[in-house]
């Protein structure tokens, strides 16, 4: 079980309110990702749930019981830190055993769980090493192993992959997703990488300055961002937000169109512009186009083999049914 409910939770450090009153429900078995720009309060929110910070006001319920005043150990949650926070002077085995030892668990049961976790995480050959003798990915797996053996009600991850190189990050992302499928335990995952959020989450919580901007499944957020902030944050490359004349044609303040929803042509189209930088990724080409009024540059996604040069004139046609409209307050207009 791992249902977590935040009710009117608020957090201030001195005079600075980092998280204004906030409500959030996390269902049992859900993979929830908190995403937002740096400094928006993602870690603080996670630490509030973990019990490492006290709430200024509001209540946190875990499985229906009030856990606001409970110390971290009593909440039955396990956390994986960005810096891994392994105990450097203990072997991998002792690191993984530590929470069970603190709980006074029976020795045979400890051994059984260590073996199971090591097998699941490919750590069997490294059990007698110190954390200092492991690679970043292996350390990350030890940290996850230490969390798994407690069989917690929920896992909390604070940017666990940000210290890994790109290839390893993709690998670990899958491993964590698979782990979630296998354990079926609630996971709360903090990241500022929207690709991680899109690929892993059942539910994404987009935060800005401590305020929840939108909660929903990755595709909901992609298809119908509630406001300009979410529109710009979810999706890569970012959605193009166009103001002025072109937006007025659609009867609103701002329109948004994703790079992948614009057709590029060298002969004809609605809008006209000149090619700036073209990023060739092989599979796709992202072209930055200048000269479209109200948005400079405008990014479009074209075919990987497209041959355009700096300074070429191109014509663009947005797909009409995929244009997002936003009002004066930046909120979505249906």
């Amino acid at each position: 079980m791992g249902r977590i409910a935040l009710k009117q939770v608020q957090k201030s450090f001195g005079d600075v309110t980092v998280i204004p009153p906030l409500d959030l429900e996390i269902d049992d078995g859900e993979f929830v990702v908190f995403v937002g720009p740096s400094g928006c309060g993602k870690s603080t929110l996670l630490r509030l749930i973990a019990g490492l910070e006290d709430t200024t006001s509001g209540t946190i319920e875990i499985d229906g019981t009030d856990a606001t005043g409970l110390p971290p150990a009593k909440r039955g949650l396990a956390m994986v830190f960005q810096s891994y926070a392994l105990y450097p002077h203990m072997s991998v085995r002792k690191n993984i055993a530590f929470p069970m030892k603190m709980a006074g668990m029976d020795q045979a049961e400890q051994e059984r769980r260590i073996a199971a976790a090591a097998k699941a995480l490919n750590l069997t050959d490294y059990l007698d090493r110190r954390p200092g003798q492991l690679s970043g990915g292996q350390r990350q797996r030890v940290a996850i192993g230490r969390a798994i053996v407690r069989e917690p009600a929920a896992f909390l991850f604070d940017e666990p992959l940000s210290n890994l190189d790109a290839a390893l990050r993709v690998g670990m992302r899958m491993e964590i997703s698979e782990l979630h499928k296998k354990l079926d335990t609630t996971m709360v995952y903090v990241t500022h990488d929207q690709v991680e959020a899109m690929t892993m989450a059942d539910k994404i919580v987009v935060l800005q300055a401590g305020v929840i901007e939108q909660v929903g499944s990755p595709l909901e957020l992609y298809r119908a961002p509630r406001n300009k902030f979410v529109a710009g944050f979810i999706g890569s490359p970012k959605m193009n937000l166009i103001e002025g004349e072109l937006a007025n044609e659609h009867g609103c303040r701002t329109i948004g169109i994703r790079p992948e929803h614009v057709e590029v042509s060298t002969t004809e189209g609605q809008w006209q512009g000149t090619v700036g930088i073209a990023e060739h990724l092989g599979s796709d080409t992202f072209i930055h186009i200048h000269g479209v009024p109200g948005c400079d540059p405008l990014t479009v996604r074209a075919d990987g083999e497209v041959s355009v040069r700096h300074g070429d004139t191109v014509f663009l046609t947005p797909r009409q049914n995929l244009i997002h409209r936003f009002d004066d307050n930046g909120m979505r207009i249906e």
Binding site: P72, M79, A85, L86, Y87, H89, M90, F98, P99, M102
Partner: peptide
């Protein structure tokens, strides 16, 4: 590293255990 202490706290270590297993070896 404060995160080590926090990790130990999450792992259910009492103050004395944190002192004994984390601080003293450090």
């Amino acid at each position: 590293d404060q995160e080590q202490l926090e990790a130990a706290e999450m792992d259910g270590a009492s103050w004395f255990n944190r002192f004994w297993y984390i601080m003293l070896p450090h």
